[in-house]
C-alpha cells in the first residue's frame, strides 16, 4: 500500500478548495438513523473535535433518491423533494454536509438536473412555491463529511488518542461518492485517501482485490435479485478482503454498511466463513480520537466490532 500512497492521485487543488466550516447543515440519512445510529453520533463527535457545528432541521425529509432509483416513484417527486430539502439550508445560509453516499449522490445528481434542465427546475420551483417556500437557487454546496475530515487530516492526526497500531483496515469507498468523478477529491478508479486517514490514525491499510467493487445493495437489488446476483457479488468481495487479512472495513455510507455487515451472516451460513466488522469511517475516526465506545453504537452491527477494537481501549 505504501507505494500506492506515494503515487496517490489525490487532487491537492480540490482538497485545498474544500472549506473548513464552523457551521454546516447536517443532512440526515434514513438508513443511517435506523440501521447505524452510531454513525450520526460519530459524525457529530468528529465535527466537535474539528470545530464544526452541525445544524439539523426536523423539516428535512428523506432524499427520495432510493425510491426513485427503485422506479417506485416518478422522477418529479425526487426532483421536488430535492428542491425542497435543499431550500432549508439555503434559507439558513449554510452549506450541506452529508454522511451517506446515497444521499450525497442523489442530492448532487438531482441538484445538477434541476440546475441544468429548465423543465426540471420548474418542477422544483413550482413545488416550493406551492409549499410557500423560497425557490431553490441551486448554489448550495454539498459535501460528503469524509472530504471535510480529510481536509483537516493534520489536525485529526494531532488529536489521536488511541493510535490503532497494527490494526489492518481496508476501505470500501462506495460507488455513489466516486461516481461524482468530476468533484471527488481523489481518482475515482483507484482512490487512496481513506488509506491516508488510516495511516494518520496509526493503523495499517490493506489492499484487497475487490476494494473498488460495489456493495450490491443500491437500488434495492437486495430485495429483488438477492440470490441471483447480490449474494454471489458480496461473497466474492468479502472473501477477497478476508484473503488479504483484513481485520476491519470502513464505509462512508450506511447503505453499503448494511450490505457488507449484515450479509456476512448469510455468507457464513452458506458455508463460506467470513467475519470482518464493517463500520463507518467517521466511527473509526471518533474511536481513534478517544470517543467513549458506548457512544459509537457498535451494538447495531451484525458482525461484532469490539473484538477487534477493544484492545485499543485503555
Amino acid at each position: 500500500m505504501e507505494e500506492y500512497q506515494r503515487l496517490s492521485l489525490i487532487d491537492p487543488q480540490r482538497v485545498a478548495k474544500l472549506p473548513t466550516p464552523e457551521k454546516l447543515f447536517l443532512f440526515l440519512s434514513c438508513t443511517g438513523s435506523i440501521e447505524y445510529p452510531g454513525t450520526e453520533r460519530a459524525v457529530r463527535i468528529v465535527g466537535e473535535k474539528l470545530g464544526i457545528e452541525f445544524i439539523e432541521s426536523v423539516d428535512q425529509t428523506c432524499c427520495t433518491g432510493y425510491m426513485l432509483t427503485c422506479n417506485a416513484v416518478n422522477p418529479q417527486l425526487a426532483l421536488a423533494s430535492t428542491s425542497r430539502n435543499l431550500s432549508i439550508p439555503q434559507e439558513m445560509g449554510l452549506d450541506v454536509g452529508v454522511f451517506c453516499n446515497g444521499c450525497y449522490g442523489y442530492l448532487r445528481e438531482l441538484a445538477h438536473l434541476l440546475h441544468s434542465n429548465p423543465a426540471f427546475k420548474e418542477v422544483g420551483d413550482k413545488a416550493n412555491e406551492a409549499l410557500g417556500r423560497v425557490k431553490y437557487h441551486g448554489h448550495t454546496k454539498i459535501y460528503h463529511v469524509q472530504e471535510l475530515w480529510y481536509r483537516q487530516l493534520e489536525k485529526l492526526t494531532s488529536l489521536v488518542k488511541r493510535p490503532l497500531t497494527g490494526l489492518k483496515i481496508a476501505a470500501h469507498y462506495g460507488c455513489h461518492y466516486l461516481a461524482n468523478k468530476d468533484v471527488a477529491i481523489d481518482d475515482a478508479q483507484y482512490p487512496t485517501f481513506h488509506e491516508e486517514i488510516y495511516k494518520a490514525l496509526g493503523a495499517t491499510s490493506v489492499v484487497y482485490k475487490e476494494r473498488r467493487a460495489c456493495c450490491g445493495y443500491s437500488v434495492g437489488r437486495g430485495f429483488t435479485h438477492r440470490e441471483e446476483t447480490v449474494l454471489p457479488h458480496i461473497t466474492n468481495k468479502m472473501l477477497s478482503a478476508a484473503a488479504a487479512g483484513v481485520q476491519l472495513m470502513t464505509t462512508t455510507c450506511p447503505g453499503c454498511n448494511t450490505a457488507l455487515d449484515r450479509e456476512q451472516k448469510t455468507i457464513t451460513s452458506r458455508g463460506k466463513h467470513v467475519s470482518i466488522p464493517v463500520i463507518d469511517l467517521s466511527q473509526l475516526i471518533a474511536f481513534a480520537l478517544g470517543a467513549p465506545v458506548e457512544q459509537l453504537g457498535f451494538k447495531a452491527n451484525t458482525t461484532p466490532v469490539l473484538p477487534v477494537l477493544e484492545r485499543f481501549v485503555i
Binding site: 435506523i34 445510529p37 453520533r41 426536523v58 421536488a80 425542497r84 409549499l131 453504537g297 447495531a300
Partner: peptide, 28 residues
C-alpha cells in the same frame, strides 16, 4: 440504541415536514 447514544429515540420529522412531503406527492 438511539436513546443510549443521546439521539432522539426515532428520527423526527416535524408535522410540517411530513405535511409538505405529502403535498409533494399530490403536486408532482
Amino acid at each position: 440504541l438511539r436513546s443510549s447514544l443521546g439521539l432522539a429515540p426515532l428520527r423526527i420529522v416535524s408535522d410540517k415536514g411530513i405535511k409538505e412531503y405529502q403535498k409533494l406527492f399530490e403536486i408532482t
